[in-house]
Amino acid sequence: MTTESGIEPEELIRISEDQIARFVVERFLSDVEWTELDPDYDLLTTGVIDSLGVLQIASWLAKQHGITLTGPELTAGNFRSVRTIRATAERPQAGGAA
């Protein structure tokens, strides 16, 4: 199936919530299965990630997925949950979909 613009969905959605959840769990939550991490779980108020964690995720997005985030987007609020991280990565400014 193709969209009207003819772009494959896989290309548009370049990263899935599952992929992000797998990475977050592997790096920060060793006792948890990735399926247990709710996409809306607040990673910030619960101390799973801090500003250093934000940089680690950003670096992973860049290296593994070619998604480069610019300075203004590297705020903790943009990494609050798996869902927020994905939304951040999807934004056009992220050098993604366009």
Binding site: L29, E36, Y41, T46, D50
Partner: peptide, 16 residues
């Protein structure tokens, strides 16, 4: 798991 324990903590203390 640690996710629930973190939630428990976050309801009772500061993030640090």
């Amino acid at each position: 798991n640690s996710l629930s324990l973190r939630l428990h903590c976050s309801e009772r203390t500061v993030r640090a």
